[in-house]
Design a protein around this nucleic acid. Sequence first.
DNA 1: TTGATATTACGAAACACTTCGTACATTTGA
DNA 2: TCAAATGTACGAAGTGTTTCGTAATATCAA
Lengths: 120, 120
Amino acid sequence: MKPTTSEMEILQVLWEKKSCSVREVHESLNKKDVGYTTTLKLMQIMLEKGLVVRDSSSRSHIYTANITEEQTQTSFLDKMIDTVYHGSTSRLVMQALGHSNTSKEELAAIREYLETLEKS
Amino acid sequence: MKPTTSEMEILQVLWEKKSCSVREVHESLNKKDVGYTTTLKLMQIMLEKGLVVRDSSSRSHIYTANITEEQTQTSFLDKMIDTVYHGSTSRLVMQALGHSNTSKEELAAIREYLETLEKS
DNA sequence: TTGATATTACGAAACACTTCGTACATTTGA
DNA sequence: TCAAATGTACGAAGTGTTTCGTAATATCAA
């Protein structure tokens, strides 16, 4: 299951806020040029797809993500390594490190993690 | 410019073989359930988009990728870090390392690269 | 109460992607 | 030579995504 770009934006909000009405999601996104019913429709479709669940006991339905963020990240990652990097994780890692200016602290954290991986 | 999945498959062939006729690309892909004209049409659209160029001096046109593989990889990577990892490269790197079984040699290579990054 | 506001449901339009059929042109070989 | 094979061009159908308008319903406030 691979959420679309718009669906990802909505999921980000739900992951951050736990549970939300459509209105809350729509306002968090605050896309100037997109109407409320668009967000509503997207979330209804996400419900059909099983990406979210909702509590419809009150008039304004409350939505919650039905997949975890980590789950989703690794699923995107796997697909990307496969289709863009020929399965080479290390190539992806090196490019990622080289291309963005990661802070010294982050680099150190990654190195430590790497050392524990190398020991096992 | 973000190639679609089908376009990526075609680009992979072009990157590997440098220059190809539609027929060659189609056969390299050897998708059982997709006709030749589909590949042709896709490549014509890619031409319009500027993803490929072609030499049409002979009857069977010869296509060449017009973007580099590295360019494309980093463009996917940047988008992914942005939309899936909230801009956190280190989180992506850690997940990538943790999730796939990278060989000891690759891990060592990454650590060395990391150390040079830390020094600069 | 009743009119304004907020909410959901839903159909449909606009767009992009993938697929194929068909028309037409060129090459090949029997 | 001329029929078969090969190649390009292109329209159109099918599907998925994003967008919105409108209708129906519920809530709220004066």
